[in-house]
Every structure is written in C-alpha cells, then in structure tokens.
Amino acid sequence: MRILLVEDETHTAEFVARGLREVGHRVDVAGSGRDGLFLATTETFDLLILDRMLPVVDGLTILRTLRASQIHTPALVLSALAEVDQRVEGLKAGADDYLVKPFALVELLARVEALLRRPASSSTGTEGTLLRVADLELDRLERTVRRGGERIELKPREFQLLEYLLRHAGQVVTRTMLLEAVWDYHFDPRTNVIDVHVSNLRAKIDRGNTMPLIHTVRGVGYRLGPADG
C-alpha cells in the first residue's frame, strides 16, 4: 500500500516511515504542508498521515482542501492537541482517525492497518449481519454469539468488544482503539481497565476450548484469530 506521510520533524518522519516500510508499505515523505498538499493532489495514495501542526499550511488545512476537491483518501492526523474539541475539529476537517503525540509506533501501525482495511468492511451494510472466525459466530441482528454452535451469553459491552475484534479479525487492535470504539467517550484511560474487560470476554469465549481465539499482543493490545502469529 502507498502512504503519504506529511511531517516536519525529520526524526519522527524517518522513524514512522521506517516502521511503515518494515511492515511492507511504500512511503512518501513530505517535510512541509505545501509539499504534502502538492503530492496529495497530484498522485494517488491509499492513506495519508498528516501532522496537524505544520508551518505555513497545517495538516487540517491540507485535509479541508483535499476534501473540498473530492479527494477522499483515508487520513490519519497526528497531533499534540488531545482535547475532545480539538479531536472533533480534526474529524470535522475530514480525518478518519486522530492519534495524539506522543504515540507508540505499534499504536500507529495498528491504526494504519485498521484504516487500510476499513473500506471493505464498512462500505457494505449487508455484510455485517454475520461475523465469523473459525467456529466463532456473531449475529449482529439477533445479537447472539455462538462458539462451535453453542450459544454464549454476553453482556452488551462484551458483545460490542467482540464485534469490534471480529471486524478487525487478524489485525492487532490496541487498547485505546478498543476503548474509543466501545466506550464512546474521550477520556484518559490511565488504568489498564480494558485488560479486565478483555479477560472477562476471553473467559467466556475461550474457556475450555482447545483453540484460543483472543490473543494478547504484548505491549500493544489484542488480536482475534485462529492461531498465534
């Protein structure tokens, strides 16, 4: 996949670009907003990663300009501004995700994967009724979960957690992604409270099963899939 990274801090830009290349992406780096805007309008990318605070032309201005000229490439905004209104401002400008600095590279990579794979799962409405991985089945209409044909009772929030994991099956999903997706609030998740919720969910899904489906990715988050890999 081809990614455009617009970031004026060279160290951060190099670090992020290297990380993205290591997982197999092609990365173009623009060191200023003007270059970034030029590249984004003249060439085709699968994803844009924009720093919000850039000299002269900032990230949100680039985004607004692109969206106004009907360029809908998914965009991830990086910013030191973390408050909910600042986030909302970013999303309103056309960002698909908003990541606050300082961020862990793995967090950025997980979000990039989620954004790159998103169109397939979110554009079609009918696809979503039944989500299945191995012998685990989740019916979104009936709001039921079955493992090996056997019904599993979940609390509403556990159901949402599992649904999100299933939608991103095979991908690494970070704790903050889970919190943002399942708890529709912006707050400081200082505690690793999400771990408690996932382990409760795991107890219901994987208990007594020879093939565990919910895997912990150390230092990052979780991945739902048939095998550890």
Partner: peptide, 17 residues
C-alpha cells in the same frame, strides 16, 4: 501542549528504537 509533547515523542521514539 505542542512544545511539551514534542520532546516526549522524541524520547519515546528513541527508547523504542
């Protein structure tokens, strides 16, 4: 926020590297 988080980002990147 910008000025304080930038060095944090650098520190984080260096530790990760």
């Amino acid at each position: 926020a910008h000025d304080l988080r930038r060095p944090l980002q650098h520190a984080r990147r260096e530790i990760e590297e």
